[in-house]
Amino acid sequence: MDDTAIVQLYWDRNENAIAETSAKYGHYCTSIAMHILQDHEDAEECVNDTYLNAWNAIPPHRPALLSTFLGKIVRNLSFNRYKAKHSRKRGGYEIPLILDELSEIVSDRETVEDQIDRNELIGEINAFLAALSAEKRYLFIRRYWYADAVADIAKSCGKTENAVSVELGRLRGKLRSRLTERGYDL
């Protein structure tokens, strides 16, 4: 079933919307949740919560890209669950590595919310993305949106892990430079 039809099921309040979503995007959502949580049970719960969130959000929302709409929800839910669990135990997660990498871009200090316009900042990040080649954009998004392991990214695009790691490091440096040049004290 195409995405438009699935979204229409939500709008019609037809419970088949969940089944169709699960059939088409269950694996996609589970993959994202697993990258973050590294736990099947937790991932499954987050995916189910994703469907519930989608059910509650549509309508009134009508997502243009259903996959990324769902992906964003499951990413947020999984990361929230990760943070809750992470306060209790460590190890076995991809996220700590990703967060460590991201700490190269930010100071990792508390900042006053008012000092940063989040919409403007995400605009800058998107502009940064747009300026990248397709391959570099792919690397960045797979790592920092999908939370893919470097090894998986390397395999998917036929590169060595080292090459991917080096490239990601350069991209982080570029992003940091770009944001700094534009006055963001992160």
Binding site: A64, L65, N76, F79, L129, Y138, I141, W145
Partner: peptide
Amino acid sequence: GEMDETAVKAA
């Protein structure tokens, strides 16, 4: 997580 959806989709 708020990165451009089109780019995310493409990835």
